[in-house]
Design a protein around this nucleic acid. Structure first.
Lengths: 230, 230
DNA sequence: TTAAATAAGTGTATTTTGCACACTTTGCCT
DNA sequence: AGGCAAAGTGTGCAAAATACACTTATTTAA
């Protein structure tokens, strides 16, 4: 390293993840219970300081991986927060990410938790430390916008899902109601999901057909100028 | 400061601005000619290291202000770049911003330049150092998406503009052609711009009407569930 | 076995929006 | 006065969005 950088410019940089899940018609966020200062014994967004030999993206993935044991997850950078006084121990910038996970995949192996963690319905999140409330607000907003223009809702659903499930996912996130017939017509006309021939089991009513999302299809369609919209 | 942060986490953070302008039917970017190492004597995005007592947003605004003398400019955070080896002198994260300026306002007082700077048409940008090419690509992309859903195109035009000007702005950024009649119909139906009664002067053909953008109107309409789309 | 309960699934008519398309007007210049 | 250059303007057709209500499949309890 030839021309070193003056220490008056040196700050810490962290990543914070807003991890979304969907379950029982509720959009949920995964929070951790802080075991160390500052803000010990508070619920907060999972995050970590970035060490100098780690790429930014990599750090965000590591936080997720350490917490959930999951890999190959949809993640997206949200925004970077850098108020001078946002951290009580010194100057810390934080780069916020969001991740969408299939909550069912995660629930089955909670033994991998490095720290105490819990899912909170998006409207029952406790007061969060630092500027995490602001980060969460940004994340919700981005999710709302993104889900209408990109087929990312499927990341929150199990591999096989019903049309009712995806509709209520959209309704939960966008905080609106859709007409069932119109919603289905539009969704199916995009040819991104297919009927698998399977059915729901063990429900106390007419079982719904199970569909799956065809990842490749979207990539193909995009070439031809197709744009997702719901 | 009670619990200090270990120095193994300390990196530098900079801001880099992608400053867009529109002139002569061309979308342009403002680049500076670097007078210092690294990459001395290269054209690059204007940027600066953030000092510890400065908020992130503030730093981005300062870079713009120092370069152009302009204030109250539309700016937006794009993305943060944090590859380990992106800077040859050490670990430097950079937060990229974009700014939209009325190029005419700027052109008249180039004396305020702190460094040598020049406008480059977006398709004639020279090879840029660091990951600035990647940053520029992100910025173009964001601009393309944003301009279709938010009335930010006006930030690139003079206070009074013609319908032809705004159409060619959209055509330049989106790299498409619009039908004049349909474009005008849609734009005018949003009630965001009004005919000022003024006219173009000193053109060798029928002078066009001059319109202006009503900032307040958009805020009002948003309340009523209106969404901008072009 | 039958009836009730629950959610799944399905079609049509109307309104709105998007899109294609070509000629006339205004003012300047020579 | 005639030519030039860009501004400005309306209609018809096709596609998409919206509003709207009943039938079907399965489980559970009488």
């Amino acid at each position: 390293m030839e021309g070193n950088i003056e220490s008056k410019f040196k700050a810490a940089v962290s990543v914070d993840n807003v991890i979304f899940g969907f379950d029982n018609n509720d959009l949920k966020v995964l929070l951790i219970y802080r075991g160390a200062e500052p803000y010990k014994d508070c619920w907060a967004l999972p995050g970590d300081l970035i060490s100098l030999d780690q790429d930014l993206e990599q750090s965000a993935e590591n936080v997720l991986q350490n917490l959930t044991g999951l890999d190959n997850i949809y993640m997206d950078q949200i925004h970077t927060f850098g108020r001078v006084d946002r951290h009580p121990f010194g100057r810390v910038f934080t780069v916020a990410y969001f991740a969408l996970i299939k909550i069912q995949d995660y629930m089955v192996k909670p033994s991998s938790w490095a720290e105490e963690a819990a899912w909170f319905p998006i409207n029952e999140v406790p007061e969060l430390p630092f500027d995490h409330m602001e980060i969460l607000a940004y994340a919700k907003d981005l999710l709302k916008n993104k889900i209408r223009h990109q087929p990312i809702g499927f990341e929150l659903l199990p591999k096989y899902f019903t049309l009712t499930e995806i509709q209520s996912l959209y309704e939960a996130i966008l905080e609106t109601q859709f007409d069932t017939r119109n919603f289905r017509k539009k969704l199916l006309s995009m040819n991104l999901i297919v009927d698998t021939g399977r059915q729901q089991k063990e429900v106390a009513h007419r079982p719904a057909k199970l569909y799956k999302y065809i990842t490749k299809r979207y990539a193909q369609l995009q070439q031809s100028g197709f744009s997702f919209d719901l």
